[in-house]
């Protein structure tokens, strides 16, 4: 009986003493943190993807609280809605951005792009690109070793085992930009997100002269300027034998796709065209245009 009492008393004394000491130390070493950082962090998606350019969501929250204005702050995962909430919490105005999505600008599947050698070292794109131009004749194209898939926090980009090219899942992609940074060939671009995930883009970044580009890959952009002439909206530029479609100026009319001799311009998520029926194609384009303008 005595033992029990002594035990209880001594343990209670030790416990409360420790508690007091802990409390005093906690007070002494307390770090003041703006409570708004916690609020903002609560609003953020918590993926810690680094797409905002800050180390993790808390880093971004901290930066948002400290920043003079939110003009340069943007969380691609939370998007405009998220930023509006952040701005409300801080009593400021959020900068809005058009939503974007990652696009892989290479279509050189093995059918189109001849393999010229066999790569046998550590299987990452970064290491392969540090060694040489790649295992195909095109020194610009995708290496197919999937560094972009490894860095994606959102499971939104996967290697297609047939084409050996990465494919972006538009629904999952938050355009955090991790894959863009990971790709040593700089193939991936964040482009404006359109209605129904429609996309028109040049799926090639080969800057060689047309002849050698074509020799390396049958779907390479050869810089022939056919699309430049076809485009009514001045959205296409050609530099270093390579066409680029400005996603903001592009009205998704698909005329460039029709004229491209090497099929290097992709149209994605469009309704199928009626064969050889130019009239219809044009009306459809008009319809699309109206939709877009109304948008």
């Amino acid at each position: 009986m005595n033992t029990i009492v002594i035990t209880i008393i001594s343990l209670s004394v030790i416990g409360s003493l420790s508690g007091v000491i802990l409390f005093l130390i906690a007070q002494k070493f307390k770090v003041f943190e703006d409570p708004r950082i916690d609020d903002v962090e609560g609003i953020l998606p918590g993926a810690n993807c680094g797409g905002c350019g800050f180390p993790g969501c808390r880093g971004f929250a901290d930066a948002c609280v400290k920043a003079e204005s939110l003009d340069l702050m943007f969380c691609p995962v939370g998007g405009n809605d998220g930023m509006v909430k952040v701005a409300e919490a801080l009593g400021r105005v959020a900068a809005t951005k058009d939503p974007t999505v990652a696009v892989v600008r290479c279509a050189g599947s093995p059918d189109h792009r001849r393999r010229t050698n066999r790569y046998d070292s550590a299987m990452t794109c970064e290491i392969a690109s540090g060694l040489y131009s790649g295992d195909t004749a095109c020194s610009f194209g995708c290496l197919g070793l999937g560094d972009c898939t490894v860095v994606c926090t959102f499971d939104a980009i996967h290697m297609n085992p047939v084409t050996l090219l990465p494919e972006v899942d538009d629904a999952k992609c938050t355009s955090c930009g991790a894959c863009v940074k990971a790709c040593p060939k700089m193939i991936i671009e964040l482009r404006k997100k359109n209605k129904k995930d429609r996309k028109i883009y040049v799926s090639c970044i080969n800057m060689d002269k047309g002849a050698s580009a074509k020799k390396a890959c049958s779907v390479a952009c050869i810089g022939c300027k056919a699309c430049l002439k076809a485009c009514e909206y001045d959205a296409i530029t050609i530099e270093n034998f390579l066409a680029y479609i400005d996603p903001v100026k592009c009205k998704l009319c698909r005329k460039c796709v029709e004229v491209c001799p090497t099929d290097s311009i992709q149209e994605i998520n469009f309704p199928p065209r009626k064969k050889a029926d130019v009239e219809v194609a044009v009306t459809e384009t008009q319809a699309n245009k109206t939709i877009m303008e109304g948008f």
């Binding site: 393999r115 066999r118 790569y119 046998d120 070292s121 550590a122």
Partner: peptide, 11 residues
């Protein structure tokens, strides 16, 4: 060897 392609690797 395979498909008549040269192998390339780091030293």
């Amino acid at each position: 060897s395979p498909n008549n392609l040269l192998t390339v690797s780091h030293s």
